[in-house]
Nucleic acid binder design. Structure first.
Lengths: 164, 164
DNA sequence: CTGCCTGCAAACGATTTGCACCAGC
DNA sequence: GCTGGTGCAAATCGTTTGCAGGCAG
């Protein structure tokens, strides 16, 4: 929205085009729009949500194209797969270092950019021969909405049903 | 295997029976065995792997029962869903505080019990009204196996295909 | 031209659901 | 006996694949 965000988006798109050139991949409108759709969202949309978003801009796209485009963007390292506990694939245009707030009530995941946390000593790197490149912290707790529900009804732990 | 592990298992099972009593749920053999199957594994098995394990002990079980049993155990808070990036559900009998090593090459997730990390200051708890109950750190990197592959071929980033 | 990308329809695999029956309490 | 668990088969849902064009380089 503001210029900062906008610049970020520009950069990502430039990065995408750059990679296409490097790898001699045709840069199609579809994939550009798919990337834009991911970048336009703050949350971690599912492939289907993105399909809807893309379809608003390119009425004829097929679901397959969106799925394949997303996969391609992941391969290029421009977007990330976001791992929620539901079974559907989710994507995240923010490939920078950031952390997550995971709600134990509704399973929603929000990004957390507070980086006072960063100076954690990346430890035991070579433990078990594992080479650590980065890390992110999952904070588990309850989002405002679920806190309210929780205080009202201590009981049932609204099932882990999928959101739709 | 050793007495410590064994005790842990006992406790979990006791906890399960306790919860069944509290909530007036019948405690069936199937669910007990499902729980045991989860506890007997160190990794994060898929529902289908657990189905196989359970079937070895109760030849007649249906896949449905295992799925439903696992769901029930998750609801009871005895086992956790483990979030990998592949599309299949995975489960984890270790509900204690622990961290994860996530391989960017093969997406495998391993538990990390090194708790020198624990004294991290749980910060900004009330940020956005989010109530933080716990946290876990995802270390992203490359497991020994993928490091080897990576050093040989810098190129293709073996696709994110499912393991089977 | 050549190769990757697209769209469609069909296939697929994991998970869920409806229903009749059976088992704990 | 009532309630919830089980097993089976069918349905569902997200995702992938095969194939025939189409388009970017």
């Amino acid at each position: 929205m503001d210029s900062k965000t906008s610049t970020f988006k520009q950069q990502k798109i430039a990065q995408f085009e750059e990679l296409c050139r490097q790898q001699r991949l045709p840069k199609t409108i579809q994939r550009r729009v798919i990337l834009e759709a991911v970048l336009d969202r703050e949350d971690h949309p599912t492939a289907d949500q993105l399909f809807e978003d893309v379809r608003n801009r390119i009425p004829g796209v097929s679901r397959t194209t969106v799925y394949r485009g997303l996969e391609a963007l992941v391969q290029l390292g421009i977007v990330r797969r976001a791992n929620h506990s539901d079974a559907v694939a989710r994507f995240d245009g923010n490939t920078d270092h950031h952390h997550h707030l995971v709600c134990l009530g509704c399973d929603r995941v929000t990004d957390l950019d507070d980086l006072k946390l960063d100076p954690i000593k990346l430890p035991d790197g070579r433990r078990r021969g594992f080479e650590i490149a980065d890390f992110s912290i999952h904070f588990e707790g309850y989002c405002p909405e679920c806190r309210r529900k929780k205080s009202k009804a201590l009981s049932p732990r609204a099932g882990l049903r999928r959101e739709k």
